[in-house]
Amino acid sequence: MQDFINTFHIDWRLMIAQMINFGLVFVALYFLAAKPLRNLIKDRTAEIETGLNDAKTNAILLEQTKREYADALSKARIEAQKVFEEGKKEALVKKETMLNDARAEVSTMIENGKIVLEAEKAKMVNDAKRELASLAILAAQKIIEEKK
């Protein structure tokens, strides 16, 4: 044993010094590099996993939203078509009513106009008659005066 120790110069103090060295390496490497890096890698992996899951969820949501959008759009189109049709019908009805009203009004106006015209005409005839009578009187007076 002594030969072995002498040949290799084995010294327990050197061994302890090397153990301390290793201890320091362990502390430096573990606490400064390995532990923070492993934590970082774990966090990053978790983040990536969450991101991927979120992306999947988002893709599903997007697909669903697209489908809902398409459904809503087609429903809206149908609804719009319906509203348009109804509007059209209503407009036609209104148009008809308005036309009828207009026709009725026009005919009333014509009737009224006719009555007014008739009245005017009668009045004019009366006036003319009266005028004519006065003229005839005047003429007769003149003739009489001339004959005198």
């Binding site: 050197l14 060295n21 490497l29 400064l32």
Partner: peptide
């Protein structure tokens, strides 16, 4: 203090320094 510092121990101190430097750089 009675401890013989060998050339191997010096190199392992150097190794320790290198590792500490790398670890610090990473940190």
């Amino acid at each position: 203090g009675g401890l013989q510092i060998t050339n191997s121990l010096l190199t392992s101190w150097l190794a320790l320094l290198v590792i500490v430097a790398i670890s610090l750089a990473i940190r």
